[in-house]
């Protein structure tokens, strides 16, 4: 019999092959002009939004903290990465890494003092930090001030974005499905009990916040290098809110939920683009209606999997496993 490790490796190689095939087909279609630039743009946006939503979900959904300043960290990553390619002329990969790390460091700096605040207070603090970061960028002329930064080389493409999205989802889901992830989730469930059971709650809150911020920074770097121009206003409260909506609609504590919501909302947003102000009115109404009728979001805390449809067989398997150990 294969060891559990070998079995998992085989399964993962299988998933990797499927992903590679998907990437290859789309890449071929983009290069061959079958997917026109407009659709390509939306594919890129979907990728960036998945990174943003999944990383915010780690903070809001799994850790149960309440951040509404995610766009601030995206801004740090975007400006940080753009500085590296634009002013230091270093390779794109280093720029992305730098932007992400810078956002992660900001996450630690913001998280340490504020994460002891609870619920609404934390929400306001993160909102405040998002606004402060934006306010500072506006005031630094070296990085373009209020007019923003333009002429950033277009280095991000489908390949970069696809694989970095995969990496983000993989890292965050591996984190969540480990003892560290369980420690993170226990804080959401009952912070006092978690602390009493030996979980260093401050450490795990800051860790979740930092990992979340880091990937927001990565998304920012990708954004900057696809759209050549970034402005402080791109990363305002409305952007944070957009990300929050994806997380909540998808289900807080469900990675697949965030992915589905990021895809659906990006498409919805693109198809309503022509309606200008009406787009946001429809968006707002949709949001209110969903919150009124399904406040836990699409997936709740569950994950989407094909075994969901054959729940019974999975239960049986689980029980046998349980008794085998019990005997």
């Amino acid at each position: 019999m294969m060891s559990m490790f070998e079995r998992k490796i085989k399964k993962q190689i299988g998933i990797l092959l499927i992903l590679a095939a998907f990437w290859g087909v789309i890449d071929f279609m983009i290069k061959g002009g079958i997917i026109n630039p407009y659709y390509e743009l939306n594919l890129i946006l979907i990728g960036i939004n998945i990174i943003l939503a999944v990383s915010l979900n780690l903070i809001n959904g799994f850790n149960g903290q309440f951040s509404i300043g995610h766009a601030g960290f995206m801004a740090v990553g975007a400006y940080g990465a753009a500085m590296i390619t634009l002013k230091a002329h270093l390779p794109f990969a280093i720029a992305l890494l730098f932007g992400a790390l810078l956002a992660g460091i900001c996450g630690i700096l913001v998280g340490l003092p504020t994460l002891r605040l609870r619920g609404d207070y934390l929400a306001i603090a993160t909102l405040g930090f998002g606004e402060i970061i934006r306010g500072l960028i506006v005031n630094i002329d070296y990085i373009g001030g209020a007019y923003g930064l333009s002429g950033i080389p277009k280095l991000a493409n489908w390949t970069w974005i696809f694989w970095l999205t995969v990496l983000t989802v993989l890292v965050i889901s591996n984190f969540v499905n480990s003892t560290h992830g369980r420690a993170t989730i226990s804080i959401r469930e009952n912070e006092i009990a978690a602390e009493a059971m030996g979980i260093n709650t401050t450490k795990y809150k800051v860790m979740a916040f930092t990992i979340g911020s880091l990937f927001a920074g990565l998304a920012g770097g990708l954004h900057a290098h696809y759209f050549y121009t970034i402005q402080p206003n791109t990363f305002n409260f409305l952007k944070s809110f957009d990300i929050l909506v994806m997380v909540v609609l998808g289900g807080q504590g469900s990675i697949t939920g965030s992915i589905i919501a990021a895809i659906a909302l990006t498409i919805l947003s693109a198809s309503l683009q022509k309606l200008a102000a009406l787009r946001l009115v429809i968006y707002a109404l949709l949001l209110i209606v969903v919150m009124l009728f399904r406040p836990q979001g699409l997936m709740g805390t569950k994950e989407f999997s094909f075994s969901m449809f054959s729940k019974k067989s999975k239960d049986k398997e689980g029980k046998q496993h349980g008794t085998a150990i019990g005997q």
Binding site: T179, R182, E189, I192, A193, A194, A196, I199
Partner: peptide
């Protein structure tokens, strides 16, 4: 004060975390 939305075994695994 259980971790009420988690499974019984996850409650224990969290306590094993250290």
């Amino acid at each position: 004060r259980l971790f009420s939305d988690l499974t019984v075994i996850d409650n224990l695994k969290i306590a094993y975390h250290s």
